[in-house]
Simulated scan of single mutants.
Amino acid sequence: MAEHRPPAAASPFAHAADEVRAVEFRGDLSVREITAPAGLATNALALAGDVRPEDEGVDSPYGTGRFILLHDPDEPTQWNGPWRIVCFAQAPLEPDIGVDPLLADVAWAWLTDALRSRNAPFHSASGTATKTLSKGFGSLASEGDGAQIELRASWSPEGAIGPHVEAWAELVCMLAGLPPGSEGIAMLGSRRATRG
C-alpha cells in the first residue's frame, strides 16, 4: 500500500508571489507581470503598471511604475529581514507644479501615507524623489515646457505583501493625478505634453 503524504507546503516566496498576483487593481491602472531583474536576490517578482495606457506594453504618457518583490533568506544587512520591496513611479506634471519646492517631499509623503492607509507596515525605508523641468528648442520648441516627477524607493515589508502592492498602485495613480476614488474621471490633456 502506498504511503499517503500531505502535499509539500508552498515556500514563503511562492506564497507571497500568489498574494501579489491576487491583488485587484482599479480599472484605469493596467498592471502586468514582467521579468524581474536578475541578481538582486534569491527570489524576485516584478510588476509594471501604467495609468490609462494607449498601447499595451508601452509606458503610459500619464504615469508609469514598477514594483519588485525581493526575497533572500540570508537577510541582507541593509534589509533588516528576508524581504525587500523596490518601487519606481513617474508621471508628467504641469510646469507650474514642477517648480514647487515641496514637490519631492509631497511625493515621498504620498508613498508613506499610502502604505499606512493600506495597513502595510514597513521599516528600513530609503529613496529619492526627482523633479525634472525641460524646455524644447529647435525642432522641439513646439513641445514647450515640461516637468516630471520620479520616485524611487525601497523598504522592508512586514506582514502580508498584498497591501504593499496596493500602496504602490495608489502612489502611481496619485503621481499621475488620479487620487483614490477618481476612476473614470477625465484627465487634463496638458499633463501629457512632456518629455522624459
Score class of each variant (00 low, 15 high):
residue 173 C to A: 13
residue 168 W to D: 10
residue 170 E to A: 08
residue 118 R to G: 00
residue 144 G to L: 07
residue 170 E to Y: 00
residue 150 E to T: 14
residue 158 E to Y: 03
residue 99 V to K: 01
residue 134 S to P: 00
residue 121 P to I: 01
residue 154 S to Q: 15
residue 127 G to W: 13
residue 159 G to P: 03
residue 140 L to D: 04
residue 151 L to N: 07
residue 170 E to P: 01
residue 164 H to S: 08
residue 116 R to L: 06
residue 147 A to W: 07
residue 157 P to N: 04
residue 136 G to A: 10
residue 173 C to F: 00
residue 126 S to R: 15
residue 128 T to P: 04
residue 113 D to N: 14
residue 155 W to R: 02
residue 105 D to P: 02
residue 134 S to V: 07
residue 122 F to D: 05
residue 167 A to F: 04
residue 156 S to W: 07
residue 104 A to M: 09
residue 170 E to G: 03
residue 165 V to N: 10
residue 139 S to P: 09
residue 148 Q to F: 12
residue 109 A to M: 05
residue 132 T to Q: 11
residue 150 E to P: 01
residue 126 S to P: 02
residue 154 S to I: 02
residue 102 L to Y: 08
residue 166 E to R: 14
residue 106 V to L: 06
residue 97 I to R: 14
residue 133 L to H: 04
residue 128 T to D: 07
residue 104 A to Q: 14
residue 172 V to Q: 04
residue 167 A to H: 05
residue 136 G to I: 04
residue 157 P to T: 09
residue 118 R to C: 03
residue 173 C to E: 13
residue 169 A to I: 03
residue 133 L to E: 09
residue 129 A to E: 07
residue 165 V to M: 08
residue 107 A to Q: 08
residue 110 W to S: 00
residue 174 M to V: 12
residue 167 A to N: 09
residue 165 V to Y: 13
residue 146 G to V: 10
residue 135 K to T: 12
residue 121 P to F: 02
residue 140 L to T: 11
residue 108 W to Y: 02
residue 163 P to Y: 08
residue 103 L to H: 10
residue 97 I to P: 00
